[in-house]
Nucleic acid binder design. Structure first.
Lengths: 154, 154
DNA sequence: CAGTATCGATTGACGATGTCAATGATTGAC
DNA sequence: GTCAATCATTGACATCGTCAATCGATACTG
């Protein structure tokens, strides 16, 4: 597509400029940093994300959580099980659709989440230290369009 | 992070604007798309990345591959084993350090990689359709700074 | 209303990944 | 030459990703 004229043997793919590769590597760093920041709270990035969704006022069902986080529904079961066993969230059958469980954060959960959130924010501040505020907003905007494409169902 | 004006009590974490979360979600989509594009070639994003590194003229050792891709060295063993069994790469002891194996792509591997590369490029074209050329370059630049921080060890 | 297809949550299975510890061969520092 | 460190490798073990099957509830069709 670009200017790929060189018939030389060592043209090859330059991974360093490939968005997919950079995405994978940046994400690996991000997950590692996040898990480290969350370990003191007994959370990982997965359970933290579920907690964050429950902390919103949207009363998400497990299915909605699985779509938003791009997880298999069965994984959400395990995540919610764990959080529920620790009294951080509760399941409540959706009155409008009794098949569905709405996941609600408990006050205990909200408290833990607040502390975890601060720890994560600090870790991100370090991790994203390369970027200034404007660049972070820009990155967030661009990533958002990749993460939630026009025809997405998340 | 659209127009979220509601000053309600449930401010909570807005995952939708969180770079780490967007990174995870965009990466999930990217991996899924990449694996689908690579399946016809018997590759996945992991093995493709190893092949891509071998396709460069840098003669990477397995340790270098593991650092670059942020994988445990033992995973690189398995990946190279697989590629080698399929005659796509070969191991060659580094003359300068006989502990190390340099991973070389074979002509067969180069041929497969070329085809796979085109398939991946097409998949990315679709996946990144939301962004124009300028935005993609911008994203690549910003991501690169996150993926390879100043004081990186990988 | 009866019958049927679909959906949400759950369980179980299985391979792929992430992570860690231990080993053998080799290297570099002393 | 001795000794710590490094590279590749193996093995173990938990986590994750994905799929199929089930159960109860809902939606669709007539």
């Amino acid at each position: 597509m670009t200017s790929e004229g060189t018939p030389g043997p060592a043209t090859a793919a330059d991974l360093a400029g490939d968005i997919s590769f950079l995405l994978a590597r940046a994400n690996a760093l991000s997950v590692a940093s996040g898990n480290a920041a969350l370990a003191p709270f007994g959370l990982k990035v997965r359970s933290y994300a579920v907690l964050a969704l429950a902390a919103q006022d949207t009363r998400p069902s497990q299915r909605e959580i699985s779509e938003y986080l791009r997880l298999d529904p069965s994984q959400v079961v395990a995540l919610v099980d764990d959080l529920q066993n620790r009294s951080l969230v509760s399941r409540q059958p959706d009155p409008a659709d009794r098949r569905a469980n709405v996941v609600l954060i408990t006050s205990e959960g909200r408290e833990l989440f607040g502390a975890a959130e601060r720890s994560v924010a600090e870790a991100e501040r370090v991790l994203h230290g390369e970027l200034d505020e404007r660049e972070r907003a820009q990155l967030s905007e661009l990533l958002g369009r990749l993460a939630f494409p026009r025809d997405a169902r998340g």
